[in-house]
Design a protein around this nucleic acid. Structure first.
Length: 525
RNA sequence: CGCGGGGUAGAGUAACGGUAGCUCGUCAGGCUCAUAACCUGAAGAUUGCCGGUUCGAUUCCGGCCCCCGCAACCA
């Protein structure tokens, strides 16, 4: 089967040559503040899908990282009196620390938009778009508030005035910027949404982006004057301008998988030859992860819908590259009662704190099953604790303890025959169906519900058959019951592998070694 | 009439033209293998309001009220 052994030598090839590839990514969080719970949710969900795919036998490339250019970072660095590079280095480390803290796969790719390869890729991408005729220069008018000494956007204004300085008239400043001809892609985008009904998940978000694009797209500015804001990737062949941060950041999804290969030599001539081919054939790595996968699956928050599902797709079209495969849109995590999380309200949640107090898998559990998969939902310490106690301590953890106790006390091990017959039972088949359906629609909550249905079922079996009692009167029947419970537990643990990876491994080990957990899997709080 | 989403038991949610399901919480029984955990049962919803279509609507249509996003160059 594996004919091309050459391919398997590639470092990026994570599995056997014949494995089907799957590529998933989060958005890259902007490093203007510490990692927040919303991004943690996005990262955990993407990781869970990635793990599930891996278990399904796919070769998986999972990407995350940090978005590090732009005005806000430049200003933050200045106000702290450090260089932008020092500033972003510090933040990148904080975000990278999420990989172990959230239990993301250790081989998760972490890209920074300041990485040299990414910088070159962004420039190559720019050139590709430019050569295809979708970049032009135009005067760009900005409103400027003298009081704030800042540019203001329309959305910041109240009645056409700066809310902080309502008595002052706004000045209009003109500067020359490069623009991206997004307007040229309205039709193509609508076609994309029409032909791929699962391009955006959930449906409601697909409708939203459809109606947005239907109203017409305006070209947007994709550069800034370097004299005003130098912290960006230089525009190719124009030192006076740097790229607008969005334009650069979105390119990470292809630079992360090696686009364009020809750039490895750093030579400008290679750069232009790469782009002239308009993505017809790029390198093997890109070919593998972007083309053979049918595109990347992108997780993003609902505030990113336009950028990911319209802007970025138009940019890909402009560069002559195939589109993403699916955009999965999360809701926001809110405070109690659906109010916005904000530092001033004091209702923010630090993912590192939660992990410290409850553990990685507890946080994974909560964001995967207790929060709505696509809509806004609230995260409060009370809800977290309640869910933790009910489903992890009393549910899963307690089940493991009681089953393993009976198994160890009566020296019952899981045998192949029992395992197979349980796998064929209708409860398990139904749960598996639900589980797969859930993952198929990126509804991890639904998939998790199927697992907890089995946990309840196992608890009910203990109560109904009372093997702990029966062991005194009919030992062999009791042992059969216990073996069946072990089979249940093994299936449950198997299904939990992508969801609660550490816990699932622990349970599988306990079954294999016929041991009680040394301490409760989830201590009641 | 700017666009979009939503209003289902105390809380969070599911379903969908034909007994409104689930989780947490509450109450009552049961069990003792287990992390005072577990199992069973019960109470609790005129499915925002008003009309219409229909044999029948929470589900389809129209109107109204309320909530929440978005309204693009702020990542």
């Amino acid at each position: 089967m594996a004919k091309k052994t050459r391919k398997t030598e590639k470092a990026w090839q994570t599995g056997p040559e014949w494995q089907k590839p799957f590529y998933i990514t989060t958005t890259l969080p902007y490093v203007n503040s510490d990692p927040h719970i919303g991004f943690a949710m996005e990262a955990i969900r993407a990781d869970t899908v990635a793990r599930a795919k891996k278990l399904d036998g796919f070769g998986v490339f999972s990407n995350t990282g940090t978005d590090e250019h732009g005005m806000k970072i430049y200003q933050n660095a200045q106000s702290r009196g450090v260089s932008p590079q020092e500033y972003v280095d510090e933040y990148a480390a904080k975000f990278k620390a999420l990989i172990p803290a959230l239990g993301l796969m250790p081989d998760t790719n972490f890209i920074r938009t300041t990485d040299p390869h990414h910088v070159r890729a962004a420039q190559a991408f720019w050139k590709a778009v430019e050569q295809n005729g979708y970049i032009y220069k135009k005067n760009y008018k900005v409103k400027y508030c003298v009081g704030c000494e800042l540019e203001k956007t329309e959305s910041e204004l109240v009645d056409g005035k700066c809310p902080l300085h309502p008595l002052q008239e706004l000045e209009t400043i003109e500067e020359e910027n490069y623009f991206f001809k997004a307007s040229a892609f309205q039709k193509q985008l609508l076609e994309l949404y029409e032909t791929k009904p699962d391009f955006v998940i959930p449906d409601s978000r697909l409708n939203e982006i459809k109606s947005f694009v239907r109203k017409g797209l305006e070209d947007f500015s994709i550069s800034r004057l370097a004299s005003k804001m130098p912290w960006g990737i230089p525009v190719p062949d124009d030192d006076t301008q740097v790229m607008y941060v969005w334009f650069d950041a979105l390119v990470n999804y292809i630079s992360a998988v090696g686009w364009p290969d020809e750039l490895s030599g750093d030579q400008p001539s290679e750069l232009s030859s790469a782009v002239s081919r308009k993505g017809e054939l790029i390198d093997q790595k890109f070919q593998h992860w972007w083309i053979e996968t049918g595109g990347v699956v992108q997780y993003c928050g609902k505030d990113n819908l336009r950028q990911q599902a319209a802007m970025w797709q138009a940019m890909l079209m402009a560069a002559g590259l195939p589109n993403s495969r699916t955009i999965v849109v999360d809701g926001f995590i809110t405070g109690d009662g659906g109010v916005k999380m904000s530092k001033s309200l004091g209702n923010t949640v630090d993912p590192f704190e939660i992990v410290k107090e409850y553990g990685t898998d507890a946080l994974r559990y909560f964001v995967l099953r207790e929060l709505h998969p696509f809509e806004d939902s609230p995260f409060t310490p009370e809800k977290f604790k309640e869910a933790y106690n009910a489903h992890l301590a009393n549910g899963l953890g307690n089940l493991v303890s009681r089953v393993m106790k009976m198994a160890v006390a009566n020296d019952v091990k899981l045998d192949e025959k029992t395992a197979q017959s349980i796998e064929k039972s209708s409860e398990i088949i139904m749960a598996m169906k639900e589980y797969e359906k859930g993952f198929g629609g990126y509804n991890i909550q639904q998939a998790s519900n199927a697992v907890w249905t089995l946990i309840s079922k196992a608890d009910a079996i203990v109560q109904e058959r009372e093997p702990f009692k029966k062991i005194k009167t009919d030992a062999s029947a009791a042992k059969r019951d216990i073996a069946e419970l072990l089979a249940y537990l093994k299936i449950i643990a198997g299904l939990l592998l992508p969801i609660l990876p550490q816990t699932a491994e622990t349970i599988l080990d306990l079954i294999k070694e016929n041991k009680m957990p040394e301490r409760p899997l989830f201590v009641r709080k």
